[in-house]
Write a protein that binds this DNA or RNA. Structure first.
Lengths: 220, 220
DNA sequence: GGAAGCATACTTGTATACAAGTGTGCAAAG
DNA sequence: CTTTGCACACTTGTATACAAGTATGCTTCC
């Protein structure tokens, strides 16, 4: 029998590594990417490296200079605003779908995540992750492949700036309360309310994020 | 002065050509893509061809076989359903934004497009294009880069199947009427109603499309 | 006649060599 | 001292050569 899982091709791991470096800000926005340099750093030839760069380009994580060559993409405050807006629409859609597909197991999983968030609300990092998992679980339950795909794309764009969002414990507590509301709408299978609350939740997060980021982002 | 517009690289034109062939069904879903074959057909070496394939892969227009190699992606009926659903959410969002940003020029452009659609409602192809332009103009007015980008992506996926949608003149007349309603909501700057109507419009189109496609798509 | 094993041709993935264009820095002239 | 022109180093884009793995079809054995 041939192995079902073939080892990831070099291009794939280069793509994953570069993406990680971009999202973790090791490669900051605006940074020019030189193929020979990265090639040597990652110990692959330019061919698989260029493959990885094309994937990142299609994902809008890097930009192509008019002259050729790539730079790590920068986001303006307006773009962050836009990303939150479409994310709100997508999460609203998925929440409505999830409400209709809700199962006992799903409700249990979500309840656990809210409880975890409750315990960790005082730790910014952990609370942020728990909150993020809550949204991912809703996406899982919604079982809406394309909404999930687009959401993932948008989420990846915002990943670099997420740390700015939940720094105030006041906001984290409020967010937790909003999650409770969404959970309630979901388990009672109230699709319209779930959608409404999920949307408002993201838009509230947007306002927090934008005012938090505000002065830090000139425009870039 | 150096020319601002550099000629498109070979990979770019190969990408555009392959995308055109996929969307026009010249390369039908399920078709295996062999690099040497396409390479010779398009008169480029495998290197820029592979670049184009990576871009198509990131756009979900082709799939990667577990063994390596690409096939033109197929959409199941459920996926088409999902695509319409997210498209409804995105167009609703853009309609709301457009209502708030509406200008006299925008209103005039939209009115012209509705009038054109009116004249051409009996010709399936032309009416379809006019209707599509109506949505694009709304996207233009909304000036929401990320919503437009995601919408374009979704629209590209559905492009292969759009011909199935507007085959009945009854549906085309109804769609025209829905466009009039959206236009009215937009020019009166009623964001909530614009969003609602735009969403319902797409969901109605979805129902038409799915029942029209229904038997033609086994699942694949 | 059917099945198993093997050789072969073809596929993709990777590396490297080559060509064309771009920007930079220095030198020289005004 | 400034500015213009040029040469060079370096960049990306492309083609080709090579390696490894896969599927296919034939031969051979049961």
């Amino acid at each position: 029998m041939t192995d079902k899982l073939r080892r990831a091709s070099g291009g794939q791991v280069v793509y994953a590594e570069l993406k990680r470096q971009i999202l973790s800000l090791e490669l900051p926005p605006g940074r020019r990417l030189f193929e020979p340099e990265l090639s040597q750093q990652l110990q692959v030839s330019r061919t698989p490296l260029r493959e990885a760069l094309r994937l990142l380009l299609a994902e809008d994580l890097v930009d192509q200079l008019p002259t050729g060559g790539m730079v790590v993409r920068s986001l303006s405050a307006q773009e962050i605003d836009e990303l939150y807006t479409v994310r709100a629409a997508l999460e609203g859609l998925m929440a409505a779908e999830a409400a209709e597909r809700m199962t006992d197991e799903g409700a249990e999983a979500l309840t656990r995540l809210v409880a975890r968030n409750e315990r960790l609300v005082e730790f910014a990092e952990d609370a942020m992750n728990a909150g993020h998992d809550f949204h991912l679980e809703i996406a899982e339950i919604a079982a809406h492949g394309w909404a999930a795909r687009l959401h993932q794309q948008v989420d990846g764009q915002m990943a670099r700036y997420r740390a700015f969002t939940n720094q105030s414990q006041l906001r984290r507590t409020a967010a937790l309360e909003e999650h409770r509301g969404i959970l309630d709408a979901l388990v009672t299978r109230d699709a319209a309310r779930a959608r409404q609350l999920a949307e408002e939740h993201v838009l509230t997060a947007r306002d927090t994020a934008l005012s938090a980021i505000g002065e830090r982002l000139p425009s870039a």
